[in-house]
Amino acid sequence: MPIANFTIYLFTMFGIYALFAMSLNLQVGYAGLVNFGQVAFFALGAYTSALLVVKAGLPIAVGIIAGMLASGFFGCLLAWPTKSLKSDYWAITTLAAGEVIRLFALNEKWLTEGPFGVMNIPQPLEGLIDKYYNIFYFIFVLIVVAVVYMLLSMLTDSPFGRNLKAIRDAEDLSKSLGKNTQKIKVQVMAIGGLVAGLAGAIFAHYMVYISPENFRPLETFLIWGMIIVGGRANNRGAILGAVVIQTFYVSTRFVGNYVPIGSDLMSAARMIVIGLLMVSFLIFRPEGLLRERKKTYPDEV
């Protein structure tokens, strides 16, 4: 059933993008840290895991964990010079950092193979499961999404999550209440990095091949579209957004077969739609498709 394979492939990609979108959502939705370079974390996770497994021969599980750590560490590093600054600085610094990571992957051939990309990335349990490997990987991604979703929900419902929202809504106030907002920001960038790194590593082992071309700024814009449309500060929103935007993106490929419109126009048109969706959602429905759950905290009432 080739069509079933294609559907499973699409759903696996939904899962990977959902993880990626949740990582951004934690930073933007909950903590109000505008990150325009999230693709850097995705790339770091993917490259670290792929290179450790392919070049150093480490087990895949170690590669994935190392990918998460590398990406989380990069989050801390990036947060350091900017932690005391306003969100505008975060935005431009992260945007630039995203490009620098891609340039590094492109130029340091001794380490990353440069433009050739990393080939023949091993897949988990690939010898053992043969025929239904697609389904296996899909279920694997699904489980990861579920676990990450639960962990993030626990985190955002905890006092830590409340601190995050406090920073987002009134940083000065939470500072005056004695919260160490700078430390919290660094922690959020680290956790967001961990999740994005995980998404990147899973992506690398799924695609079997990665190159700097995979990590252009376009990917960041797509996941921004996902969380704005799906709903900020709501992980279910991020997942829904990933499904909506990714479906929209792939379905234009099918539309192209039946409507005589050039691919370049089609590609421009779909990015116009994504850009306009971001603008109109923020104006007319800033909360996104799924509203942030306003939880009341009995201990604070």
């Binding site: 969100s87 814009f221 921004w224 990015m271 116009i272 850009g275 306009l276 971001m278």
Partner: peptide, 10 residues
């Protein structure tokens, strides 16, 4: 700021 980013893409 996020609106301007969306606007820029468009």
């Amino acid at each position: 700021m996020i609106i301007t980013m969306g606007m820029g893409i468009a």
